[in-house]
Simulated assay, not measured.
Amino acid sequence: MTSVFNTPPPDFSQKEVQNLVEEHFKIAGSVKSLVSDRDQNFLINSPSGDFIFKISNSMESKDVLDMQNNAIRHIKDNDSDIELTYPQISNNGDEIIEIKKNKSTCFARLLKYIDGTFLKDIDCKNNLLFKLGQFLGRFDLALAGYDHPAAHRSFIWNVQSVNQLRILINKNSTDKKIINYYLDFFKNEVLSHDDHLTKAIIHNDGNDQNVIINANRKISGIIDYGDMIYSYRALEPAVCMAYVAIDNDDPFSSVASILKGYHELNPLNKHELNSIIYLMCMRLCISITMAVYRKKLFPENKYLIVSEMKARKFLKKMLNEDLNKWANQLIEFVR
């Protein structure tokens, strides 16, 4: 089935983008291409300010973009101090414009640029990771109560979409055994307690490439809402913890600090706390599966494999760990 994951990203030139931004938003400036997964992103520097021109994959639904835009407004209404990539209004009064190239139609948005440094470029100590957890907890509190039909779409990056994952791992003989190992844990330790796990719309990608640190070394904002989904609330800190864990040979104190910060602002129940380690591992299972699947389709896009090797190494390492013990130790740490 055709989707945003097997359809090539848009292919607009910097000159074409320059013309589009001037035509639709009356903003003239320089254009720089940025890395992206399934979309196409450009940094626009202009006298009017700095912006991101985001051209969505041709298979992306307008409803998904509308969901993201409305989520941003909801957060702003509840916590205006969180820096977000607010959509700009076009000359025709639209937040989402339609553009065409080579018989392909894409939706595009001009978004506010958030100045700062990515978390990945900062030496993160546990006190900063604690604040990262707090930030994600604060983000989810500001998002609480928001809903949108597009957030309930079938989506592989939602850990609840295990059937999609099972289909893909049948094409991935390299990792099939290890992923099935974690799927069994997920079934027994997460899905069996589904009724006790709070669900909400979450960012679902609070990794170190999306979180922004300002000049005062404070976590100020977050970008890239493309994976936003209705899922387990506990998945929010778990995703962040997973990507921190793969960069650390002894990750417990680092990931536990994130969880403690989140739990302090947005308390999780005992079932949610117990689920964290299994959610972490499932996220990384999805990560390596998607990397294997998509790098075959788009071998030139190195962004697709940025976490693959480290994620696989972590999952193999955790085969020798007692995951139930990890769950109990995380609970003890945050309480």
Rank of each mutant, 00 (worst) to 15 (best):
I246Q: 01
D66S: 09
S192W: 00
D227H: 12
F135A: 07
F139D: 07
Y278N: 13
K131H: 12
F186E: 00
L129I: 12
Y146F: 10
I122T: 10
S173W: 01
A242F: 10
F186A: 00
A291E: 00
H203Y: 09
V190W: 02
E332D: 14
E60F: 02
R233V: 11
A238R: 08
S104V: 13
K270P: 03
H193G: 07
I97D: 01
K26R: 11
K120H: 09
I167A: 05
F107D: 04
R138S: 05
S231H: 03
K76W: 08
A311H: 12
K260G: 04
L297N: 10
G137W: 01
S36Y: 04
I178W: 00
F107H: 03
E300N: 13
T85Y: 04
T2G: 08
L265Y: 05
L259N: 06
Q209T: 15
I222M: 07
S287Q: 10
M280F: 11
V4E: 05
H152T: 10
N70Y: 04
D250N: 15
N127F: 08
I99R: 01
A245V: 01
L191Y: 07
L323E: 09
I27L: 04
Q68L: 12
I75W: 05
N41K: 02
L119Y: 05
Y278S: 04
Y182T: 01
S287D: 11
W326L: 14
F139P: 08
D247R: 13
F130Y: 09
L183D: 00
M309D: 15
S173A: 00
L268E: 00
H271S: 07
K313H: 10
N266Q: 03
A150M: 05
R217S: 15
L279H: 09
K100F: 09
I96Q: 02
A150P: 03
V334N: 03
I99M: 04
K26I: 11
K125S: 14
T7K: 07
D140W: 08
K120Q: 13
S287Y: 08
A256I: 05
I179C: 03
I212C: 08
K54I: 11
A242P: 04
K120A: 12
S257D: 02
N172A: 02
N170D: 02
I99N: 02
P237S: 05
N269V: 00
D115Y: 14
I167F: 11
D50G: 06
G49F: 06
A238K: 04
F118I: 15
L128K: 07
K218M: 11
R335N: 15
I89D: 04
I201V: 15
P299W: 08
P267R: 05
F333S: 09
I276Y: 09
P87A: 07
D77M: 13
Y230E: 10
K131R: 08
S275T: 01
K260D: 00
D175F: 01
H24V: 11
L330P: 09
N69F: 11
D227E: 06
G137I: 01
C281H: 12
K295Q: 14
E272M: 08
D11H: 03
L284A: 06
N320P: 05
N92I: 14
F118Y: 14
G221K: 06
H196W: 11
N70H: 14
S104D: 09
F139W: 06
Y303P: 13
C285K: 05
D77S: 13
S220C: 10
Y181R: 02
L110G: 06
T7P: 02
S104A: 15
S80P: 14
C106Q: 06
K260A: 08
L259F: 11
